[in-house]
Design a protein around this nucleic acid. Structure first.
Lengths: 204, 204
DNA sequence: AACCATCTTTGATTTAAATCAAAAAAACAG
DNA sequence: CTGTTTTTTTGATTTAAATCAAAGATGGTT
């Protein structure tokens, strides 16, 4: 049940068996269908989630339009971070893109863990650093890459995203219109159809 | 000497006088002229800087072009964060935009402080959270705003940036070409020339 | 299966911004 | 101050991507 989580965490810090146990005790296992809202905009977030299975997205309302600020995939942590830490209303909704299984850690539970053992603070910092780095990289992508390049890079990082996430959400995540993304897809398909000089000249 | 720093830190955590003193002892005061390179790309960063006076930028080489990933202004902290924390070669150079006065905290000094007193870990986390939030906001700007809007927002946040930072660096920071930014400036000037219906019709 | 709603594709057109090329302005060095 | 280099502005042109409008496709529901 907690394998994916513990495997992931051991990449960041070494956890003793008792530490692992006390973490697992603090977690709630939850399962939700597609489109379920885990946090409404305006609410204060009380949980950090670990995605055991499925995909989650942070959705932001900007001038009538729904913008996906980020996705969270299997093996990663999701939170309305600022809201969770500073107990402020969240600007984003957290919505499930697919049927999902998650582990939820409440604010109070994390507090208690952190009071007991500094390893949890350390872990928290590692995660924060990781997601911060990701965000910085993403800014660089916007600064230096065109729409097709950004899509290309996303696919390299997450080839499965194409089939699992609706195009509209992907487009807003990448900062382009739906139509543009749809056209990029078509171009890519065409190029794949003649993958490796199968027939140098089709007229032959 | 350390006033700006301590004022800033007290916004984040409460520091006792002894804590303040041990921090100041750990800091080196440095002063550098414009264009000085504080960290070369490829080197491992050994310092976090606090800008007492001046502006610093993180410059990234992308296909022959120099991209400014971020600026650091008076009253803020600058670091090649990933390099500093994980002892890896930095992908960015840190260069001073103007003559500057800084406080430098070495990796070992921070280590020692953190071992002595958890308040420094806590502080570190606060800063990380702050800069992470900033980065997320910046991504949102790229997702949802046009070039003029991004420039507009930057000016609202930092009106002084216009005069202090060369246009080329600003343009790459905003993810647009120099020419585009130059044209945005012209437009803004024109609009300011007739600020508030000074003369409804100049022919009168 | 037939219907409805939502999502995706496609085409035509407009708009935003990049690129290319060169002039003007500013900063700097001797 | 003068010449030199770098930065900024400007104009013309091209390219990328948004928008508008509509048609197809897909998925779920009864």
């Amino acid at each position: 049940m907690y394998d994916t989580l513990l495997r992931r965490l051991n990449q960041l810090v070494l956890l003793t068996p008792p530490q692992q146990r006390s973490l697992c005790k603090a977690l709630q296992v939850v399962e939700h269908p597609k489109d379920e809202v885990l946090l409404e905009a305006g609410q204060v977030s009380n949980h950090i989630y670990f995605m055991t299975e499925g995909i989650l997205r942070a959705s932001h309302q900007h001038e009538e339009k729904d913008v996906t600020r980020w996705f969270c995939f299997e093996g990663h942590f999701a939170a309305a971070h600022f809201s969770f830490v500073y107990r402020q209303p969240s600007e984003d909704r957290l919505v499930l893109v697919t049927d999902s299984k998650l582990l939820a850690l409440s604010h109070t539970a994390l507090q208690q863990l952190s009071d007991q053992d500094p390893v949890w603070i350390d872990l928290n910092r590692h995660l924060l650093e990781h997601y911060y780095t990701t965000s910085l990289e993403r800014v660089l992508d916007f600064q230096t890459r065109s729409a097709p390049e950004r899509y290309q890079r996303l696919l390299e990082a997450r080839p499965d995203i194409e089939t699992k996430v609706p195009l509209g959400h992907l487009a807003s995540f990448l900062g382009m219109s739906q139509e543009t993304l749809s056209r990029l897809r078509r171009k890519r398909k065409k190029q794949q159809q003649v993958p490796k000089n199968a027939k140098p000249n089709s007229k032959n």
